[in-house]
Amino acid sequence: MEIRLLLISHASTAAMRAGRFPAADPLAPLDPRGLAEIQAARSSLPILDDATGIISPAGCARETASALGLTATVDAHLADLNYGSWHGRRLADLMTEAPQELAAWTRDPDAAPHGGESFSQLVMRTGEWLETLIERTSHTSQANEIHNVVAVTHAPVLRAAIVSVLGASPAVFPRIEIAPLSVIELRCSRRGWTWWPASR
């Protein structure tokens, strides 16, 4: 049994373009610009035939999946990084008001915003989800079958998946850039998870 997993980061949001951390409301929808970006990119995004669709609970991920024509179920493990008390705050304001905390968060993978989640914790959560995906798929797939999965989630989750699959230190987390509507491909076979160039 082999799993081919495409992870897609959701379209840009107004908060992202304004340099804000996501709002505390996870159901905040995409704005017209974000929806337009999906339509412009839709033909170039690889959506696998007969794929199982999975999405983050966030409204931006749901709307991205819907605009891509992907029928998907919600999985809480694909939720965005928990930014704690920084939800909805502007990065520029935090650089003035809490420069030491912000610096620690960008350099120390174990540091977390007050009440939030660290990069290390997100890597662990994402790694656990990947292992759970193997278990669930093994019960529904035959030995020589390729099981296609498409998951629409958040850039930090894509970064965490790469770190987890490569067995890298969470300290490399800030060195991985994931733009809106980016795609990464992971495959799982007998030798475990591997990172592949995303292809159609």
Rank of each mutant, 00 (worst) to 15 (best):
Y83P: 00
H77A: 15
M124T: 15
N82F: 06
P174A: 04
G115L: 03
R187G: 09
N148Q: 11
R175T: 13
G115P: 00
H154G: 03
A92N: 04
R17C: 09
S182E: 14
C188L: 04
E101S: 12
P29Q: 11
G19K: 09
R136A: 11
L48F: 09
A36Y: 03
L133S: 00
A11Y: 02
R159I: 15
S56V: 12
P197I: 13
W129I: 10
V163N: 01
P26Q: 03
L186D: 04
C188Y: 14
P57L: 11
P180C: 09
L181G: 00
D50Y: 09
L48Q: 12
V163W: 01
S12H: 12
L68C: 01
E37W: 07
T71Q: 10
A24W: 07
C188V: 12
N82R: 13
V149W: 01
A92C: 03
P57V: 14
S120D: 07
L6Q: 15
I54D: 00
M95I: 06
R190T: 15
L133H: 00
G192K: 09
W129F: 15
R62M: 08
P156S: 07
S9H: 08
L30S: 05
M1D: 01
A143I: 10
L166P: 06
T126K: 01
A28L: 13
G115W: 03
L91W: 11
A36F: 02
P180S: 06
D80K: 04
I146W: 05
I3Y: 05
G53Y: 00
S85T: 13
I184T: 15
G59D: 07
S120K: 08
G59V: 08
E135P: 00
A61W: 03
V157K: 00
C60M: 06
H114C: 07
G115D: 03
L181V: 04
A198Y: 12
P174M: 06
A171S: 15
T132P: 01
H87D: 11
A51Q: 02
Q39T: 11
A15I: 10
G88R: 02
A179L: 13
D31W: 09
R42Q: 14
I146F: 02
R190P: 11
F21T: 13
A179E: 14
G53P: 02
V149M: 07
W195V: 15
